[in-house]
């Protein structure tokens, strides 16, 4: 099994390689001269030419790709000629900020979604079930930026419970508590839609699992209900819940962009917005690459979890290998 896990992890290498080629070509194929667009319409031909030389644009594509890859492998995302800073310095902290927001909202939507779905399923048909599924339906159909604005209006402006914007309070020493305080509203705003999706899927999955013969069989032994619900029902409902949670990461990253704008969260969204409007190709390239790598890793984790959770799947892998 360890061999399978190592193989599966190694198998992401060609995928990641493909991603870099794709991202590289994407930028190459965009019409227009990056050097010209950086310098503006009235730059001299010499100036454009010297910048092209500096950016390595006169080399062949292969050479450009290999040197870019060489940099990437050393953790260097390139140089932004618009901002005149190394991209790693500018973009990476922002990317991490975005990941903090995404991971926080993932935690919120998985934990609350599963709890809500579980309770609804166990009390199927009750007022609680109907109410929470009704709210979930509404939640799933609200745009993120609107939720963000509503949360901000209610909890920050009206009630004053949470800060309106940013990641840390400039006048305080910061720290975890301060970060958490700033994080809660944007994370909830980002999570709402996915929370509703996960709650609904969890509910229907749990209801299905409750009908399984083995659950009824354990019940016939007079074991405590809550024990059966956790040991057997929840355990066997995990794979679909994990799959949908993995799929939500994409939506959360997208939704985080909106929350970042509303709550002025210093994430990658703002940076990419600036990069796109100023034709900062290397930054765009690096941004897309970081996001794509995140997707590949999330997929890997979901796959590994699924195998880890399914003895049957493990056996079929073993028999395929042997």
């Amino acid at each position: 099994m360890t061999r399978f896990f190592i193989n599966r992890i190694l198998s992401t290498i060609p995928v990641l390689l493909g991603v870099t080629i794709f991202v590289f070509l994407l930028i190459q194929l965009i019409p227009g001269d990056p050097a010209k667009s950086i310098l503006g319409g009235d730059a001299t031909a010499e100036a454009v030419e010297s910048l092209r030389e500096e950016m390595g644009l006169n080399e062949s594509m292969i050479v450009q790709y290999t040197s870019w890859m060489g940099q990437l492998l050393q953790g260097d995302l390139g140089y932004s000629h618009t901002l005149h800073t190394p991209i790693t310095e500018e973009l990476l902290p922002r990317f991490l900020n975005s990941m903090i927001l995404t991971v926080a909202s993932l935690l919120i939507c998985v934990v609350l979604g599963v709890v809500l779905g579980l309770i609804s399923a166990l009390r199927k048909g009750s007022i609680l079930d109907k109410a929470s599924m009704g709210v979930a339906l509404i939640g799933a159909s609200m745009p993120v930026f609107w939720i963000a604005l509503m949360l901000m209006w209610l909890f920050s402006l009206e009630m004053g419970l949470f800060p309106v914007s940013g990641m840390y309070n400039m006048r305080s020493p910061g720290g975890w508590m301060d970060l958490l305080h700033h994080l809660i509203l944007p994370a909830f705003a980002t999570a709402t839609v996915s929370l509703a999706v996960i709650a609904r899927l969890t509910r229907s999955t749990i209801i299905d699992t409750l009908q399984k013969d083995y659950v009824k069989y354990f019940q016939s032994f007079g074991l405590s209900k809550s024990k059966i619900n956790i040991v057997h029902v929840l355990r066997n409902s995990l794979p679909p819940i994990i799959n949908i949670s993995g799929m939500q990461v994409g939506y959360l990253m997208g939704g985080a962009l909106f929350s970042e704008v509303v709550f002025n969260w210093p994430g990658i969204g703002q940076a990419l917005y600036v990069a796109v409007t100023s034709n900062d190709y290397p930054t765009i390239q690096a941004g897309i690459l970081l996001i794509a790598i995140t997707f590949v890793i999330v997929n890997l984790i979901v796959d590994l979890l699924n195998v880890w959770l399914s003895p049957k799947l493990q056996d079929s892998i073993k028999s395929n290998a042997g």
């Binding site: 399984k212 013969d213 083995y214 009824k216 069989y217 354990f218 057997h232 355990r235 066997n236 959770l309 399914s310 003895p311 049957k312």
Partner: peptide
């Protein structure tokens, strides 16, 4: 159990 094939927890 009535159906031994489905009455054991696969996990």
């Amino acid at each position: 159990a009535q159906n031994a094939m489905t009455s054991l927890d696969p996990s």
